[in-house]
Amino acid sequence: MTVIALLSVAPVIEESMAEEVAKAVDALDAFDVSYETNPMGTVIEAEDADTLFAAAAAAHDAVDGDRVSTVLKVDDKRTSDEGADRKVEAVEAHLGRAAERER
């Protein structure tokens, strides 16, 4: 089974969040997960939900601040081991092209 999630962890501050977001991403390395960070969050893949939730909690705890906002959207398709890359490839097959566009 593969569990996929979109994780967004950010301190509630006015300045750049990059340093604190980097701490959250770095915390994921302590877990058996793969991840890819994008401008809106980090996609995480794990073999099971417990590992994914533990990694997300560690990322949340790694951020300093009086207030931290965390959003976790989980896709736990229990009948398939399809990873995030296959989901994108399926969309691209229907599009007939890459699912991205640079401006």
Rank of each mutant, 00 (worst) to 15 (best):
A99F: 03
L95C: 05
K73C: 13
V63F: 02
A54N: 12
E45H: 03
L52Y: 06
R67L: 11
V63R: 03
D61I: 00
A59S: 01
F53C: 15
D48Y: 00
K77Y: 10
V88N: 01
E20T: 02
A56G: 07
R101L: 15
V21F: 03
D76T: 09
V33M: 08
K87N: 11
N38I: 15
L52A: 09
A24S: 06
E14F: 08
D50R: 11
T79H: 15
T42N: 10
D85A: 14
A55L: 13
R101V: 15
E19A: 13
E92A: 09
T51V: 12
A58T: 03
D61A: 12
D29E: 15
V3L: 15
G96Q: 02
T37E: 07
D66N: 06
D75T: 11
P39E: 05
A55T: 09
L7V: 06
D48M: 00
E100H: 14
A10L: 12
V43N: 04
I44H: 07
S34N: 09
D26R: 13
I4C: 08
A99S: 03
R103N: 12
V33C: 09
A90D: 14
D48N: 10
R67W: 03
S34H: 07
V25W: 05
E92Q: 15
I4G: 06
I13R: 13
R101S: 14
D64H: 01
D66W: 05
E100F: 14
R86D: 15
G41F: 08
E47W: 00
A84K: 02
A56V: 10
P39L: 07
E47V: 06
E47Y: 01
A22F: 02
G41D: 07
A27I: 02
A84W: 08
D66S: 07
V74G: 08
A99C: 05
M1N: 11
H94N: 13
D61L: 05
A5I: 04
E45L: 08
A62Y: 01
I44G: 06
A18W: 01
V12M: 13
D61W: 01
